[in-house]
């Protein structure tokens, strides 16, 4: 297997032109496991780790542009992310382990498109937009139009995920992320929930976005649940009212980690954690 390491976008396009069947490798923490296991046998691998144009966190005023090749450690230690995108920070904080976070990247987590990818619910809740570059073209599309199923994306041949664009939530939001796994570190999510909630002075929900991970073929975002919660009080009783709607929105599987019944129950209960913010006006 040939291993190529372009350091400029120009290099990258030339290499991809010369090696149309090459596989893109970001941090490699998922891909190289599959290569080693013989699940995929690429002729050449194009490692994106030296492409500075695809790396780093840029504050563009009302939006952050996060380079797809930014390692998770850089996201979790960024003061800008800490100030504006806590929900993403919380998700990255429970992803893998320190060495995994040093190697693995945000773009890698997106393109792997695992239903259990830890950053994905946060990015869905934030309505992240992806910037895809090819030699002569740039296109942007919402993350929920990019990921189409487990391990499946609409990435085209010759195209590279360059950046993740996230608008700063306008006004003060509760940023919530909780993951249920079999242990605290290095675990794959059994279910997780990312939430952005805005409440008024009377604890009435003004705005809410909710995204569940690991309980469907891709991340589950239910507008029905969100609409039902708007205008209600942020309380355990109020949140319980939407349990039947949540149950309808999810389609979890049973696997080695948990049964679908458990996943349904824990996913609904994860929502109740939002009630800890009751009375803490934001």
């Amino acid at each position: 297997m040939n291993v190529l390491l372009p350091s400029t976008a120009e290099d990258l396009w030339r290499i991809l032109g010369d090696n149309p069947d090459a596989l893109l490798c970001a941090g490699g923490t998922d891909l190289l496991v599959k290569v080693r296991a013989g699940m995929i046998r690429p002729v050449s691998l194009v490692c994106l780790e030296r492409l500075d144009d695809f790396r780093g966190i840029r504050d563009e005023g009302d939006t952050f542009s996060i380079g797809a090749c930014t390692p998770h450690t850089e996201i979790v230690t960024s003061s800008a992310i800490d100030a504006f995108l806590q929900v993403l920070k919380k998700a990255v904080h429970v992803l893998g382990s320190p060495p995994i976070r040093n190697m693995a990247t945000l773009g890698g987590n997106i393109c792997t498109a695992s239903p259990a990818g830890d950053t994905l619910p946060a990015l869905y809740a934030l309505d992240a937009e992806l910037e895809l570059w090819s030699r002569s073209h740039v296109r942007r599309l919402p993350i929920d139009q990019f990921i189409t199923g487990p391990g499946k994306t609409t990435l085209r041949k010759g195209e590279v995920l360059a950046a993740v664009r996230v608008r700063k939530p306008a006004g003060k939001f509760i940023h919530h992320f909780e993951k249920v796994g079999q242990r605290q570190a290095m675990s794959i999510s059994i279910a997780n929930l990312a939430a952005l909630v805005k409440v008024d002075q009377t604890d009435t929900i003004e705005n809410i976005s909710l995204a569940w991970g690991s309980v469907g073929p891709t991340i589950v975002r239910s507008r029905e649940v969100e609409t039902a919660l708007k205008g209600t009080k942020l309380s355990v009783e109020g949140l319980k009212q939407v349990f039947p709607l949540i149950d309808r929105a999810l389609s979890p599987i049973s696997d080695v980690r948990a049964s679908s019944t458990y996943r349904r129950r824990v996913s609904a209960n994860l929502l109740l954690r939002l009630a800890v913010h009751e009375g803490c006006r934001t």
């Binding site: 190529l4 190289l32 190697m103």
Partner: peptide, 27 residues
């Protein structure tokens, strides 16, 4: 483990911990 889960292969690359079972020589 050979799959990045146990950390026994940890090395420092430019001072940062990395898993040498999930890195290729060219890198």
């Amino acid at each position: 483990c050979g799959t990045g889960e146990c950390g026994a292969c940890t090395i420092l690359v430019d001072g940062e911990s990395r898993l040498s079972c999930l890195m290729l020589a060219a890198q």
